[in-house]
Computed example of a mutant assay.
Amino acid sequence: MQDINSSAVKLVIAGPVGAGKTTTIRTLSDSEPVSTEMPMSEPAMGDKTTTTVAFDFSTVMLDDGQPLFIYGLPGQERFEHMWSIVLEGAFGVLLVLDASDERLQEECEGWLAAIEKIAPGTPVVIGLTKTDLLAKPDLRSLRANLAEQGLVLPVFSFDARDKAQANHMVRALLASID
């Protein structure tokens, strides 16, 4: 992974429940992440029976030996009191969204608004997971919707289980702040 300056060492991964935040963190990590996964109080979402209740945390060593601290936000709104704590000092946010969610546009708008309210001006890259579940993933309509709101943000599809693809998302975020 490329280098970043010494003051920018905290990356936050945000998004709704089941989008792939914890999987992305595990994929990026050099060691087993600290996780606050607990059994879901609501009905299971397919195979997903646990949810993050505080945050996930891990580190990745950058090419220059500097650690990159990765934090994952809890996706449920009832844990949103953690969002401002975790977002403080972040150099950027990787917003992970489930492309197969019929409320994709709404989820994207809601998360971007929350991030902007808590951490104004923080760079964001959007990563769409589960595009393999769609006959034809439609990234263009999400980009067009963002453009209508005056937002030009990188939007990619990626597999949260694939290290190279997850690294690409982080590199895109780093490139957006250079």
Rank of each mutant, 00 (worst) to 15 (best):
D101Q: 09
E102F: 01
V60T: 12
F91M: 13
M61L: 13
V60S: 11
I25T: 06
T24N: 00
L97M: 13
L28K: 04
A44W: 07
E32M: 09
T36R: 04
D47E: 14
T22S: 14
E88Q: 15
T59L: 08
V93I: 09
S35E: 07
P43H: 10
A113N: 14
S41V: 07
T59I: 10
A114Y: 01
E107D: 14
D56H: 07
L68G: 10
L28N: 08
F69S: 10
G72R: 03
S35N: 02
L87N: 00
I70N: 05
F91Q: 08
V60Q: 14
E109C: 10
D98N: 14
E107T: 11
L28V: 03
I25S: 05
L87D: 01
D64T: 12
L28F: 02
R103D: 12
M40P: 05
S35Y: 00
S31V: 07
V86F: 00
L62Y: 10
T59Y: 03
D64Y: 04
F57R: 15
T36S: 12
T23G: 06
L68M: 12
I85L: 13
D101C: 10
M82T: 00
A114R: 15
F55N: 11
T22C: 04
W83T: 06
T49Q: 15
R103V: 02
A114G: 11
P67S: 07
S58D: 10
L73G: 09
V93D: 01
A99W: 01
F55D: 02
Y71P: 00
K48I: 13
T27F: 03
A90S: 12
T59D: 07
T27Q: 05
M45N: 13
G46F: 08
Y71F: 15
S84A: 14
T51Q: 15
D30E: 07
S100F: 01
R103G: 07
D56R: 08
G65L: 07
E80W: 09
E106H: 11
E37R: 12
E109P: 00
P67N: 08
S58G: 06
A44K: 15
C108E: 03
G72H: 03
E37Y: 06
I115P: 09
E106K: 15
E88P: 00
E106T: 15
I85Y: 04
E107S: 15
V53T: 11
R78S: 04
D98C: 10
Q76K: 12
G75E: 05
I85S: 09
E37I: 03
V86L: 06
V53M: 08
E77R: 15
D64V: 06
D30W: 05
P74L: 04
D63F: 05
S29L: 02
E88D: 14
F91I: 05
T24I: 03
F57P: 05
A44M: 13
I85H: 06
L28P: 12
F79G: 09
